[in-house]
Structure formats: C-alpha cells, structure tokens
C-alpha cells in the first residue's frame, strides 16, 4: 500500500505525521519526495548506503543538420527551445534553455532531420539507506534547479509494492505535489485549524478528488485556532483521522529531531488506526 502525506499549506506537520506513521508500522519504505527541501532525514537519521546522481536528458542540437524548421520548439511544452531562422541566407540559431527542460525527449523524437541528440544533465542526487528497519530514500534537488517533478519521479521509481510505502510530499497543490501523490492508494492531508490551513486544504482536496485518490485529514495543533476544519470535514464527509494537540512536549521533541512516538507510545496505536481507517476508506471508495 502506498500512503502519501500532503497538506496544501506548508508547515502544518506533513513530515511529523509521515515520520511518526513510519515508525508505528512494520515493513515500511519511506520516500521523501519534498526534494526542494527534504527534512525527514533529520528525524529518521538514516544510514545512507548508496548515492546516485539524478540526471535528465536534455537536447543537444547539431546545427550542421538543423534547418530551423521549428518542430522542436512547437513540441516543447515548457518553452525550453527557441529557434531563430537566419535572415537572408545567414545561419540561424537554436537556443536551448536547460533549466526549463523536463527531459521528456519530445524534441529529439520529432526532429525530422535527426539533428537532436540527448545528453544527461545533473539535477540532483538520490540517497538510499536504512533507519532501523525502515528503508529510506530521498531526493535532493541541486541548488538553483527549478524543476522538481523529474527528480520526484526518479525517487518514486524506488517504490517497493511489497512494503507499506510512505511518501512525504512537498506542500502546495502544483506539479511537484501531483507528481508525489499520484498513484497513491490513500492520501493523508495534514492541516492546522487556521483560516490559511483550511483554505489551502480545500485546494488540496480538489486536487485529490480530481486524481481520484481517497483521503482523510489529520488536524495538527488542534487545540488552538478554530473549529473550521472539523466543520468543513463534517459537511464534506471527509474522515478526520487524528487530532494532534498543541503541546509543549511534542514541540520540544520536534525541536530536538525526535519523532514523538518514541516518547509517547500511545500514539503508535493511533497511527496504526489511521492505516486501518485508510483501508476502510479505500474499500468504500472503490464501491
């Protein structure tokens, strides 16, 4: 089973929930897909066994073969190629913008003169290791890179369906989030009872409904703010999986990089129950 953790709003406790959930279950594989700022390793402290450079193929144009027909720039959905035919028999020019390229390969496939070959470009690194018996994998996007989805896909390629796979997703509702949660059997939305928490969660709910992924909500810092999340979930018939109170001890453990289930054993059962609840939700969803 693949369970992803998402939120809409940032800083609501995705990693806290993901890490504590992972520590409460057996036979777990943990994928930190928040490749722009991965932080689950600060809590799981995995021993890294392997490091692999992540690359994407980017186009290299042989201008001796190119006749500036412009097919490549037409096919490029990300505006990563510009073509300027030369004026009055002068040579034109082809510009490739590597940072905009997602490495889909469309340009080289459609080039009628086979003028485009592909060369690898490093975008980040993927590290794999173990934290106790949890298999841990995360991607780290290189500084200055703006395209996280290709790296997220490569992290997800490690998915082992024999295990309970926990995916820590980035915040927001755009491509990196969709890339992370797509294909999950269940998604846990972590939010907080504030107007921002509610608003951004409603956007995430729309995304999950569109992707047809069953989901439930964890309300973090539930003892402050307002009751708006509970109210919204009741009206929308969304299961609330857990309330995590605003508690000094939890905050203190967090600040020391200690997942709170290590000190507060009673929560292991609660996280266990989330998985049970998610299984029921998945069955209901399939009907």
């Amino acid at each position: 089973m693949i369970i992803s953790i998402a939120s809409g709003k940032g800083g609501t406790g995705k990693t806290t929930v993901a890490v504590n959930l992972a520590l409460s279950l057996h036979n777990v594989q943990f994928l930190d897909c928040d490749v722009e700022e991965p932080n689950a390793h600060l809590f799981l402290k995995p021993e890294i066994h392997s490091q692999n450079i992540a690359t994407i193929p980017i186009p290299q144009v042989d201008e001796a073969l190119c006749d500036y027909c412009g097919k490549c720039r037409e096919i490029c959905a990300y505006n990563a190629i510009a073509i300027f035919p030369g004026k009055e028999n002068a040579r034109g020019s082809v510009l490739v913008f590597p940072h905009l390229c997602h490495g889909c390969g469309g340009c080289s496939l459609f080039c009628p003169r086979s003028a485009i070959s592909e060369i690898p470009r490093e975008i980040g690194i993927i590290e794999q290791g173990y934290s106790g018996d949890i298999e841990f994998i995360h991607g780290k996007l290189n500084i200055g890179e703006i395209m996280s989805p290709p790296l997220i896909r490569q992290v997800k390629a490690y998915t082992n369906p024999e295990k309970t796979v926990i995916i820590d997703s980035p915040p927001g509702t755009s491509c990196p989030v969709i890339g992370s949660v797509r294909g999950s059997d269940f998604c846990i939305l972590v939010t907080e009872p504030t107007p921002f928490g509610l608003y951004d969660m409603t956007l995430a709910v729309e995304v999950l409904e569109k992707l047809r992924i069953p989901f439930g909500v964890v309300i973090n810092r539930s003892t402050i703010g307002n009751r708006s999340i509970d109210e919204y979930c009741r009206i929308k018939n969304i299961p609330i999986l857990m309330h995590i109170p605003f508690e000094r001890e939890i905050a203190s453990l967090y600040s020391q990089g200690i997942p709170f289930v290590r000190e507060k054993n009673e929560y292991r059962k609660k996280f266990h129950d989330i998985v049970r609840l998610s299984e029921i939700q998945q069955m209901v969803y399939r009907k």
Partner: peptide
C-alpha cells in the same frame, strides 16, 4: 515558464 523566450520568439 519561458515567457520571455517565447516573447522573443514572437519578435523574431
């Protein structure tokens, strides 16, 4: 992304 590139392309 790439608005400036495409706008440059329109100019050309």
């Amino acid at each position: 992304g790439g608005a400036g590139i495409q706008s440059g392309q329109v100019m050309a």
